[in-house]
Every structure is written in structure tokens, then in C-alpha cells.
Amino acid sequence: MRILVILLLCLLQISCASQKFEKINGVSFVASREKVGQQQVKEILKIHANHAAVMPFGFIREINSPNIVFDTERQWFGETKSGAKQYIEMLHKNGVRVMLKPQIWIWRGVFTGSLEMQSEKDWKALEESYEKFLMAYARLAEETNTELLCIGTELERFVKNRPVFWKNLIQEIRSVYTGKLTYAANWDEYTKTTFWEDIDFIGIDAYFPLSEERTPSVEQLRAGWKKHKEKMSAFSLEKNRPVIFTEYGYRSMDYTAKKPWLVDRNDENVNLEGQVNAKKAIFEEFWGENWFAGGYVWKWFIHHDRAGGENDNRFTPQNKPAQLVISDFYKMY
């Protein structure tokens, strides 16, 4: 049985290699109040990024509310359709390919994976609202020749409860958009997502717990990846789809790999070494694998000169030692 699994994995490597896709060396380009200019895009090029995720937003009032509000005058420019279009056009002008990634924000930052309706009427209303939201951006993606469209981000309960809706939505998107599709599943959600065979990439927001050390070494982090990586490679084989990390990243703080998904305002000490080691480990483990298509680092702010810095314990690698690690590995691949 073990020999058979090894042979199947080898066949997957050959199959994925034959697709000859260039590694996605991406950044998650955070929406701003303003238009993006040439100087902001140049900062992406300096780290050898060839992809960027553009992320317009829709807003939901409560965890059980079915109404998505999007593309309004009250939103920041980069969160709207016109803003997303301007970002895409500037990125394309510079040879940077794009994943358009429309996202939902629930008031007060409630986790989107817990979005769940309490009645069939509300589920139907949510489906109608979400379809309107996604189709608007599917048409924008086609209009702008955007290379990749992400059809949802971390919507576990919505996906679990309404599988027929998602199948039908994918067909409708395909009727207007000719590019590639993915979905951004949370790290503990992707094996339960029901429609990978209907889209082109298995998308994972890769906040896997790897180590409980204050400052884990690269070796400790690579050991922490072992079980997750084996599971992902086998899953990629099963579904015959390459994996992309629709988000990956680590905060520059103590215990960064213990619960990498934390977005709170905690006061953990700034730890630049931990962020560097975590970045090195993920590149060394994944970027050389043929079944792995690349990923988008979380996150990259438009105003580079004001972002991050050595006193910042947040996710962005900007103006920190981790930025050089990303640049070196992106240049290599």
C-alpha cells in the first residue's frame, strides 16, 4: 500500500509539472482609501512578486443577517468595484498578474466561517445576495482579463449547509468568466469543502499551528509542517488539483506559529526572528513541490513607507527582515 501511495504521488508530480504553471509569488494587496500609483506597484516588483490579490469587500451587519452591502460610496476606494478595477489595471500595466478576491466583512470582525442563517427564507436571501456580489466581480474579472477569481473566503458553514447553491454559482460564474477559479478555505476547512472538482485550484488560507515555542527554529517549523504537508499532498492527488495558499503569513511576535490566525491586538513582544524563521520554513517546505502552485503573503499595504517596521508585531513583512526573505525566495522561484 505504501509503495502504491508513493507511485501515485510521483504520478501527481508528473501531472502537475506537465501543466507548467509559473509559481505564484504573490502579495495580498490591502485596499486603501486612495488609488494605487506606480510607486506603490514598484515596491511589489522590488520583492520579485509576480501576482497580487486584489480584495474588494462586501459587508454584513450580523452573523445571521442575509444582506450583503457592497460597492457603496461609504466604502474605501479600494474596496469598491471601481477601486478594484483601477488596482487591477495598474498591476497588469506592470506585468503583475491578479487574483480578484471579493471578501465578506461581518461587523466587528466576526469570523466569516460562522456565518449561518436561522431559516430557509434567510438562506435563500443570503444566496441571492451573495450571487449578486460574486457575479458583479466575476464580470469585472472578465472585463479586466484577471487571471484568477476567488469565489469565497473562509465560509465554512455557508459552504457546508448549501452545497447545491455553490455548485450552481460556479456554473453561473463560468458562463461569464473565462479565467481560473479558486476558493480560499480556512486551514481546518479545506478537506470538507465540497466543490474542488468544479474549480481549478485548491485554495487554502494556510494558518496551520506549527510550534508552541517562543521563537521556533526553521527546523522545528519544518517538522511542524510534516503532517499538514503530507495531508495536503495526498488531498491534491485525490482531487487532481494543485494547491495554492490564498493567504499565508505570520506575525512578527513571540509564539507566531502557535496560533498563526490570531488577528487580535495583543501585546506579545515583537519578534522579528520568529517571523523570519516561519517564512523560511514555508518556502523551503512548499515552493519546490510540483503539486504546490504558490501563494499570496498576508499582507501588503499600498503605502510601503508607512507600513510595518521593526516595532510592529502585526502580519505585514514590510520594512522588516522577513521582507528580504520573501524577496530572496521569490527571486529564486
Rank of each mutant, 00 (worst) to 15 (best):
R2A: 11
I3T: 12
L12I: 07
S18Q: 12
K23F: 07
V27C: 01
V30Q: 03
E34S: 09
V41I: 15
K46C: 06
I47G: 00
A49W: 01
A49S: 14
A49E: 00
V54S: 08
I60C: 00
E62T: 13
S65Y: 13
N67L: 05
N67H: 12
T72A: 08
E73W: 04
I88V: 15
V98Y: 12
W105P: 07
F111M: 06
L115G: 05
E116D: 12
S119F: 12
K121C: 03
K124Y: 10
A125W: 02
L126F: 15
E127L: 00
E128S: 10
K132Q: 12
K132E: 14
F133R: 02
M135E: 03
A136F: 04
R139W: 08
N145C: 05
T146C: 13
T146S: 11
E147L: 00
L149P: 10
G152K: 00
R157M: 13
R157F: 08
P163K: 05
K167N: 13
E172V: 06
S175G: 06
S175Q: 07
V176H: 12
V176P: 14
T182H: 06
N186E: 12
T191W: 09
F201P: 02
G203P: 13
I204Y: 05
A206F: 03
L210P: 04
L210F: 13
S211Q: 05
E213R: 08
T215H: 08
S217E: 01
V218T: 09
Q220M: 04
L221H: 07
A223W: 05
G224W: 04
A234V: 01
S236T: 04
L237R: 05
K239P: 13
P242S: 07
F245E: 00
S252E: 06
S252Y: 03
S252T: 10
A257F: 11
W261H: 13
K280P: 11
I282T: 11
E285K: 03
W287E: 03
G288C: 07
N290G: 05
W291Y: 12
I302W: 11
I302M: 14
E310M: 15
E310R: 15
K320T: 06
K320S: 09
P321Q: 02
L324W: 04
L324K: 14
V325E: 05
K331H: 14
M332K: 15
